[in-house]
């Protein structure tokens, strides 16, 4: 998929662990792992909103479009 989730980069910048972030935004560590590894098919606005809030960033910092062609 040409949409890349840069969650791990943002987490490293904010120095926050997966478990802590999952707890703060109210999702399971397994779901956060799906998001981090790029296996997710879609992301809810509510999840994105909580991620941006906790990581103090913009949606564009987390999601990136890469042309595969």
């Amino acid at each position: 998929m040409p949409i890349v989730v840069n969650l791990d980069v943002m987490m490293a910048k904010r120095k926050i662990s997966s478990g802590e972030l999952a707890e703060r935004i109210g999702i399971t560590p397994a779901n956060l792992s799906i998001l981090k590894t790029g296996k997710a098919k879609a992301i809810r606005f509510s999840t994105l909103e909580r991620l941006c809030e906790e990581l103090s960033c913009q949606p564009g910092d987390l999601l990136e479009y890469r042309d595969e062609a």
């Binding site: 999702i27 779901n31 956060l32 799906i34 998001l35 296996k39 997710a40 098919k41 879609a42 992301i43 809810r44 999840t47």
Partner: peptide, 8 residues
Amino acid sequence: QEENDYTI
């Protein structure tokens, strides 16, 4: 179902 399961 897969799409629903992988919607976070």
